[in-house]
Design a protein around this nucleic acid. Structure first.
Length: 260
DNA sequence: ATGGTTGTTCCACAA
């Protein structure tokens, strides 16, 4: 019997997505939501609107780009908002909190495209920093839930036409090498653990309106869990209906249910 | 093979 449900959703602007967010949460009443791409500075975060739909929030934002937040029905505090390893990095992509003895790690991993610009090495270095952070947590036997928009297609099964993505930062061999070296420290992809080889996606490009209808997308939003949390995982599913609502994000939510 | 769309902002850039 699950007692906590955690969703992760790249909203592509929390202001532009407020109506959809509100309609969705009033219906689903998830306890915790990891949010990415809020695209709003902290002093402009719509905290009153969020409170009106019954949630508290912690957030870290910047103008126009990036931005992460965690919404919660209960009071919530920031544990960490800096991914160690690069003091000069000002991009808002990492925020953590804690519920009971479990660290909640919400990330918006850099996209990295185009690969012949400095965006790609920035992505790879960010993945190294995340790997170090996770390695430390695992070594210290800390419980955590790592989730968000990873901008990583883990395997061929996670994209409708893998061959055309090999020169894209989301499926480049250097990206996959970093991703799988982190996974091999002992993380489990919650979606695959529950759903086997089912083919579903969390992202459908706006640029082809038929992508969603034809189920041509990418699975790039993930919940990655240490063994202690896999034991407590009850369900994991993708809420793809939201892509068909009016004014949708290009991402859809992924949800995990735990017995904490 | 190309271009298609959305969001924020100042108009091009990111995705």
């Amino acid at each position: 019997m699950a007692n906590i449900r955690i969703a992760s959703w790249n909203v592509n602007s929390i202001r532009a997505r407020y109506d959809v967010l509100s309609k969705w949460l009033k219906k689903k009443q998830y306890e915790i939501i990891f949010v990415q791409e809020t695209k709003v500075q902290d002093h402009e975060f719509p905290i009153e609107d969020i409170k009106n739909i019954g949630y508290e929030a912690i957030f870290l934002g910047q103008k126009s780009y990036n931005g992460v937040a965690i919404l919660s029905k209960e009071k919530i505090n920031i544990v960490n908002k800096n991914l160690p390893g690069d003091k000069s990095d000002v991009q808002a992509r990492f925020i953590t909190s804690k519920i009971k003895d479990v660290e909640l790690i919400c990330i918006y991993l850099p996209n990295g495209n185009p690969i012949d610009t400095d965006k790609f090495p920035y992505k790879l270095k960010w993945m190294d920093r995340l790997t170090d952070y996770i390695k430390k947590n695992l070594n210290e036997n800390k419980k955590f839930i790592l989730a968000g928009d990873f901008n990583v297609i883990p395997k061929e099964i996670d994209v409708h036409n893998p061959e055309s993505w090999t020169n894209d930062a989301l499926f480049h061999e250097d990206t996959l090498k970093k991703f799988w070296s982190m996974m091999n420290l002992g993380l489990t992809d919650a979606y695959r653990a529950i759903n086997g080889d089912k083919v579903e996606y969390t992202f459908f490009d706006y640029k082809r309106k038929t992508n969603f209808e034809n189920n041509k997308g990418l699975r790039i939003d993930h919940f990655l869990l240490p063994p202690s949390m896999v034991d407590k995982l009850d369900r994991c599913y993708i809420d793809s209906k939201l892509r068909g609502w009016e004014k949708p994000s290009d991402h859809v939510p992924i949800v995990c249910e735990f017995n904490l």
